[in-house]
Design a protein around this nucleic acid. Sequence first.
DNA 1: ATATAGTATATGTTATTTACACATAGGTGA
DNA 2: TCACCTATGTGTAAATAACATATACTATAT
Lengths: 131, 131
Amino acid sequence: MIDNNVPTERSGETPCPKGKIERFIEPCLLLLLAEKSAHGYELMDNLEQFGFDPRCQDPGQIYRYLRRMETEGLVESAWESGDSGPARRSYQITGDGLSLLASWMKTLEKRITIINKLITRYQQTIQKGDV
Amino acid sequence: MIDNNVPTERSGETPCPKGKIERFIEPCLLLLLAEKSAHGYELMDNLEQFGFDPRCQDPGQIYRYLRRMETEGLVESAWESGDSGPARRSYQITGDGLSLLASWMKTLEKRITIINKLITRYQQTIQKGDV
DNA sequence: ATATAGTATATGTTATTTACACATAGGTGA
DNA sequence: TCACCTATGTGTAAATAACATATACTATAT
């Protein structure tokens, strides 16, 4: 799902590090819906901006997330029989969705702090000779 | 495994966002071992600095990772019958381990860029009124 | 008319990763 | 000898992500 143009593939063994964040699609969807209401297919394209594959090979995941988020009251949907193409389920974010998005932001800020600490220490370490 | 003093628990439903990075323990272990050789129990304590639980409730995970990393040639181990307590398996990082660590760092830098984009857009959005 | 392609939504199943629970064992001090 | 800390591990369940497939509407070209 995530763009992984990372160095050499390691055969058979553990895959190359992708650094994916657990459930990261959730805050991305919430933010896009906070910006403006949209349907799944549209969201799929916009997720590209957050490192997800363009023309993602797993549309199912997005739809599944959206349906679950609705059962949890984070978003609400309504069918829109558009002028062209099949009907769309249009989603809009709720108050609960907005607060969850806010708590995601706090979480992600903490995560950045931790990653930065790791990077800083790494740079210090390699400067001390370890190549 | 990760410190999650995040807002309100959401009952039954999806857990609070923890923002955990997939396999994040791996670069942490590699960095600690790049700094200096160590055994599992010692590493457990030092992982606290990267947001893992102090006196982690799953020591098994760390040992499992270390053993796998050895089969992949990222680290090497040797038993050390210390002067006190049970024997320890002391790990040291290899050349392959160092290069994987380097590629982890690149991956994490990209990840930070993406998270920052998300945060920036979030702040722009809430400023435009959406509470 | 029908075949193809693009839009749009969804489910079924497997694989990967993490979390929880438990087992083992040496050494130290009460 | 009993409890506790150090130290290393395995077994299994739960959560998450990945892969594969199904359906259906519509527009355009053949």
